[in-house]
Design a protein around this nucleic acid. Structure first.
Length: 486
RNA sequence: GGUGACGUGGCCGAGUGGCUAGGCUGCGGUCUGCAAAACCGCCUACGGAGGUUCGACUCCUCUCGUCACCUCCA
């Protein structure tokens, strides 16, 4: 099935055409590993995951999916400094080497990152590579030299800057983001700390070192310019090395359009002579209870915070996937519990389908359902509509009413769909007996007896105890079922 | 100041010039000793004011409001 995608370059939905027939090459801006990732970051990673799964399952493409790991920037440097308050004992003993310290800190948070995304249902096996920036210093230097040689960068005070004014003479600067050139001060160099509002400026490719910072030698024409890479250059270099240019799709959050992605385009073209990618796909932000979430505002949750509050990460995954990726998603606790119930409803439907003892006579038109659901997923990843179609079908076609063949077709389809959503179990409905403490079961048995004796007062009292203990009791004729109250 | 987005029923969240998604909650019913669960049914919204139109939530103008990016941030 063909896939349609909204391309930030054209600002329209386009039919996706891969560069090579079967393998799609995709690059996603990943985390800066200086802390535990928050759920806003998670939305971006989930969106990339959704896209790569839709490409695989609906589009039937093979994928090479790369997500970069930013391990060198102001924050990783700050937090790995000797004496840093952000240093945790679990990271090990700090050494004299700034680079070693940086690596220890970032590897610690890299591990937490892979744990977090795994719990959210992102399969680390799906990545072609998760490259760390500091493993590509040489490649970045090669690119920078090339940009200098092509005349679009200059050295000043030991740092190397991209010359935006010069670049504008040969190409557009502002492909993703309209830039207010009236307020554009060309030729102004910046060191992020001293950036003035309302002025776009030349951006740094290579930063001269400061005392105690990690630094790498950089030899240009016999002179050494020790320092470290600027923010944008890692993506350009790693894309070139790992995927080759141009590749198919680049993903990231909307906030990265400018300056990060704009600069990435300029750098890659100025150095390699080629823009990085054909399709730019940007997800919108997540808000919390209607408020913008940001690190600086301090109103953010990490995934770990939420798991500690007993939220199931798969409910978070489903909640986020149930909003369109290009709209703002309002993260609320009510929203998560609604998502959980909706998810469980589908899970119950699957359990019913797997229950061979209880089949009906109706033939389901699974092929039509599949077309409508996959059609929506392939239409710029329209998960809300895809899910709506599924729910309408479920309302009209009860699992227990399906004949055996329809049950199997439905299961095959839902299993396929689960290669995208990755939130359901395909096994027999689990017996809860093992999970329920025996004292609770005993209370329930006593209650059943009380019911038989028509001792309603006792029965109600026992039920209250069971509920207080955190369990739900579901009655049927002469029997009961206990569930953990979630 | 520049650029852009958005305002949909109790909440979340789609969408279209007329046929008025979906989920969750709530309410009514069936069931039940009573509940819960399940099943059935109900609740019909589009910030405001104009305009275009046979007809607008959907197009246009104005207006109010919210937000994002332009500075590290998914």
């Amino acid at each position: 099935m063909k896939i349609k995608l909204y391309n930030s370059l054209s600002k329209t939905i386009e039919e996706f055409e891969p560069i090579s027939d079967n393998t799609v090459r995709m690059y996603s801006c990943g985390p800066t590993v200086y802390n535990y990732a928050h759920i806003g970051n998670m939305r971006a990673f989930l969106m990339a995951d959704l896209l790569q799964r839709v490409l695989r399952v609906v589009g039937k493409y093979d994928l090479q999916w790369v997500m970069n790991i930013t391990d060198i920037d102001d924050k990783t440097i700050r937090d790995s400094r000797i004496g840093s308050e952000a240093w945790l004992p679990e990271m090990g003993e700090q050494t004299e080497s700034a680079i070693d310290n940086l690596k220890m800190l970032t590897e610690f948070y890299f591990d937490s990152f892979t744990e977090d995304i795994s719990s959210l249902g992102i399969d680390v096996e799906d990545f072609y590579a998760l490259p760390a920036a500091t493993d590509y210093i040489e490649e970045m230097q090669t690119l920078i030299k090339q940009i200098i040689q092509n005349g679009y960068a200059y050295i000043a005070s030991g740092s190397i800057y991209f010359d935006v004014a010069k670049w504008r003479q040969s190409d557009t600067y502002g492909k993703l983001f309209k830039i207010d050139f009236d307020n554009f001060k060309s030729g102004t160099r910046i060191d992020t700390d001293e950036y003035e509002r309302e002025h776009v400026s030349d951006f740094v490719l290579w930063k001269a070192p400061k005392e105690g910072e990690p630094q790498w030698d950089f030899e240009i024409d016999g002179s050494n310019y020790p320092g470290r890479p600027g923010w944008h250059i890692e993506c350009s270099a790693m894309e070139y090395e790992l995927l080759g240019l141009p590749f198919d799709i680049h993903t990231g959050g909307v906030d990265l359009k400018f300056p990060h992605h704009e600069d990435e385009i300029a750098q890659s073209k100025a150095g390699y002579g080629c823009e990085p990618t054909n399709y730019w796909v940007h997800n919108d932000f997540l808000e919390v209870e209607g408020e913008k979430m940001s690190k600086s505002a301090g109103n953010f949750f990490t995934l770990r915070d939420l798991i500690k509050k007993s939220l199931d990460p798969l409910d978070i995954r489903f909640a986020m996937l149930s909003a369109h990726y290009r709209t703002k998603y309002n993260f609320t606790h009510d929203g998560i519990s609604a998502a959980r119930k909706a998810r469980m409803r589908i899970q119950e439907y699957i359990y019913d389908l797997m229950d061979d003892s209880n089949s009906g006579k109706n033939a389901f038109d699974v092929a039509k359902l599949r077309d409508s659901v996959f059609g929506e997923l392939g239409n710029d990843m329209h998960t809300p509509k895809a899910l709506a179609n599924l729910f309408v079908f479920m309302n009209e076609n009860k699992a227990m009413e399906a004949d055996l063949e329809s049950k199997n077709e439905m299961l095959a389809f839902l299993n396929e769909l689960n290669h995208i959503f990755a939130i359901w179990q395909f096994e027999q409905r689990p017996t809860t007996e093992k999970l329920i403490p025996s004292e609770i079961t005993k209370l329930a048995e006593a209650r059943l007896q009380a019911k038989k004796d028509k001792n309603w007062a006792l029965a109600d009292e026992l039920r209250a105890k069971i509920i207080d203990a955190g369990y739900l009791i579901k009655d049927s004729k002469d029997a009961f079922e206990i569930e953990i109250n979630s």
